[in-house]
Amino acid sequence: MNYRGILAIYKFEMGRTLRTVGQSIASPVISTVLYFIVFGSAIGSRMQAIDGVPYGAFIVPGLVMLTVLGQSVSNASFGIYFPRFTGTIYEILSAPLSFIEIVLGYVGAAATKSVIIGTIVLATAGFFVPLHITHPLWMVFFLVMTCITFSMLGFIIGIWADGFEKLQLIPLLVITPLTFLGGSFYSINMLPPFWHQVSLANPVVYLVSGFRWSFFEKGDVSLETSVIMLLTFNALALAIIGWIFKTGYRLRK
């Protein structure tokens, strides 16, 4: 295992974040504050509690997920796309690194950034609503695994994309709608039966549900289902990345 190689990529990517710390951290924090002002304080105070949880607190897990999903995808996709765009990828491809090591470096850094941002968003939420996390270990598990899985998805997008426009395409047209419709701001049990069934096809539902369960012991689906789905997405993303490196898809001609 080339640990130094993994660390080099990891540190390089983290260094890039530090250079753009305002853009990397301030932006999601400001967005979250705005969400809380609008949905938590202004509208939330007039909303009924959901499953016995005040609305302001209910949306906290959803907001954290909304942020980390977007951040994971954009951090990882940009991380691998940029060296492809500038041509510096030659150095990664000619280094004695296996695909697992390259993925650990890029995805590890993207997931770390997302976990940090998710934690900051959670801390920010604490200023607006009283927070109680019933199962902190499960909360950490869901947060970390979601960040890793969606960073892998971002890595795949970064390799698939052949322009900056495509880099934004999936996050804007797929991830964001799925997150909003995945129960971030509501329980899918509030939906009519047909739309409830449709929502179950949305992978984000399982992530939000599991994450929310760790806070309130209440979710749209069972904890087991959430865990199985999360691990399945993770394995699927890893398998796709494995195929990319095996075939050299858009990396090695």
């Binding site: 080339n2 640990y3 130094r4 190689g5 660390l7 080099a8 990529i9 540190k11 390089f12 260094g15 890039r16 250079r19 500038t86 510096t88 150095e91 990664i92 280094a95 004695p96 690194l97």
Partner: peptide
């Protein structure tokens, strides 16, 4: 890497090769 310093980019390359 346009925004990287000379020292960092050379150190990075050394690390990549283990």
């Amino acid at each position: 890497d346009a925004f990287e310093s000379v020292w960092n980019t050379v150190t990075f390359s050394r690390g990549l090769f283990g």
